[in-house]
């Protein structure tokens, strides 16, 4: 029994030199593992950070993005609610985002400083014009969450 030639042909984009188009359609699974609690927290309007529980650990910093294990001693960390207000540390409005960007071009990206948190969380400003030192408060996408970092945004406080 002869085996048939493939039925799905690759589109020829150019013949000299030869360039063809390979189609790819599939999804990737994204495993949050021990960080999933953070994204589940956003659904409940909670900003969840982590702190090391090792009594011998030197720094005991509050990490947001959270880390399940402490970068200083590799010990387990505990979940702590972070304040939902902060100030804009820096900002930039992205005119030409890359493919996959789910927000509108012209969305201001911001880095937010939150009291007691040791990082400057990257996020976006949902309303208003960004400025250095501007006070902002967290808002959450609870209606139709994407379960990504985009479910957290900030508005002027």
């Amino acid at each position: 029994m002869a085996i048939d030639w493939p039925t799905r042909a690759a589109e020829v984009l150019n013949d000299e030199p030869l360039v063809i188009k390979n189609d790819k359609f599939w999804y990737h699974i994204h495993s949050y593992g021990g960080w999933g609690k953070f994204f589940q927290g956003l659904r409940a309007k909670k900003l969840l950070a982590t702190r090391c529980t090792n009594p011998k650990c030197a720094e005991k910093r509050l990490w947001l993005p959270p880390r399940a294990e402490c970068p200083d001693c590799w010990h387990d960390m505990e979940w702590v609610e972070a304040p939902q207000v902060g100030t804009i540390y820096t900002h930039s409005t992205v005119t030409y985002p890359g493919e996959l960007f789910r927000l509108a071009p012209g969305t201001p990206l911001i880095s937010v400083e939150i009291e007691g948190v040791c990082t400057k969380l990257m996020s976006w400003l949902k309303d208003g014009k960004p400025a250095f030192g501007m006070k902002v408060k967290a808002v959450f996408n609870t209606a139709k969450p994407t379960n990504t970092i985009l479910d957290l945004a900030w508005v002027p406080a």
Binding site: V94, P97, E99, L100, F101, R102, M122, I149, L150
Partner: peptide, 12 residues
Amino acid sequence: DFESELGWMYAA
């Protein structure tokens, strides 16, 4: 997990 979604663009 925490940054690529914000622009999908290194220049940003």
